[in-house]
């Protein structure tokens, strides 16, 4: 194997490995011959190991991480409660479904999310089985995190990388091998700013984002850039994120969203809600027209809260924007 080192994306390979950039139109053998022995010695390189490293680098680019299947349905076959009582109902989710999971702390909401994450096959405490497109999933998927179908957003997550928002999103877009990573990054940023309430820019360092901005960026990225067809959300806290807009973004992208929440606005915004009790799905409630009216009213109140929050931060009196309380 003696490839031409002309691909512009290889520049990053040589940079990251601390090797000199190849001259134009040079082949690997000639590049190797031109390296001083100190440069070869630096990474413990041999011609073979360098060729192999190049193949790895290109393979990651040409074969982007993605979902192993096109997800048409996700089924959860009934398992059992903590005391062994069987669950009564199988569930079937379709792309665009937003399913809310409610129940007291410790009731088993996280267990349900974890069963879906690991594509449980009757081998978790709940004994539930998860089917993908009506079939038992390929067991191999359990042993490769990149083959997993699930993206997660939890309250414990933070951005930790020392990069600015724009560069980070580009890196994520490049890992998906999108044709125009910069444009994809811009779309995610725009969607995130739209949700966050408080604007931030491509040049803002990830680690300086506020709680609400981080959450908005995680949501926009999971909706627009992540290849995972299922999104598991463990509570989107009310940190100034427009939660309805966040859910709409997932629905538009055809994701299946499972959302564990204590927030009535979110709980009523789904197409269905699962009530968890003692480790089992005790009740499945389809959203009624009345639920939707409640959700709309709560959303209106939520917007009022946002306006009030903004006004108070600007130094205004609450009655200036929300006189209706009538004190």
């Amino acid at each position: 194997m003696n490839p031409l080192l002309d691909d512009p994306s290889l520049g990053e390979f040589f940079r990251l490995n601390g090797l000199p950039q190849p001259q134009p139109h040079v082949r690997l053998d000639d590049y190797w011959q031109g390296l001083a022995w100190q440069q070869r010695d630096l990474g413990g390189w041999t011609l073979d190991s360098l060729a192999d490293a190049l193949v790895s680098f290109m393979a990651a680019r040409n074969d982007p991480a993605g979902s192993p299947v096109r997800l048409c349905s996700l089924q959860i076959l009934a398992g059992q409660a903590k005391d062994g009582t069987p669950e009564t109902q199988d569930l079937n989710f379709l792309p665009g479904d937003v399913v809310c999971i409610v129940g007291p702390t410790g009731s088993g909401k996280s267990r349900l999310l974890a069963d879906i994450e690991c594509l449980a096959q009757g081998d978790t405490p709940s004994r539930r089985r998860v089917l993908v497109n009506g079939l038992e999933p390929d067991p191999e998927w359990r042993f490769s995190s990149e083959a997993r179908l699930v993206a997660q957003i939890t309250q414990n997550m933070n951005f930790v990388m020392d990069l600015c928002v724009g560069d980070f999103l580009c890196l994520h877009a490049e890992s998906r091998r999108l044709d125009d990573p910069r444009a994809a990054a811009d779309r995610v940023l725009a969607a995130a700013v739209d949700m966050a309430g408080e604007p931030f820019a491509a040049g803002t360092p990830l680690t300086q984002l506020s709680g609400g901005q981080s959450r908005a960026l995680m949501i926009a990225d999971a909706a627009l850039l992540s290849p995972k067809p299922i999104v598991l959300i463990d509570e989107i806290e009310n940190a100034g994120v427009d939660r309805n807009r966040a859910l709409r973004l997932f629905v538009e992208k055809g994701k299946i969203v499972l959302l564990s929440t204590h927030d009535p606005l979110l709980a009523l915004s789904g197409s269905r809600r699962l009530v968890i009790r003692n480790g089992a799905i005790a009740k499945v409630v389809e959203a009624s027209p009345e639920d939707r009216r409640y959700a709309e009213e709560l959303a209106r109140l939520d917007r009022g809260m946002a306006t009030l929050r903004e006004a108070i931060r600007r130094g205004q009196a609450p009655a200036e924007v929300w006189p209706g309380l009538g004190f």
Binding site: F13, A53, V55, S56, F57, A59, A60, R61, P64, A65, F143, S144, S145, E146, A151, Q152, I153, T154, N156, M157, N158, F159, V160, M161, F168, L169, L171, H172, S175, S214, L217, M218, D221, A222, L225, S226, P227, K228
Partner: peptide, 29 residues
Amino acid sequence: ITKADIVSQAEREVFAHRVRQVNRKARIL
């Protein structure tokens, strides 16, 4: 890959991609 529960999904995906750029043959968990 450990400690992924406290970083964003996006960072997990980028990190796994970086690992694959260095070692395409390994399983990543």
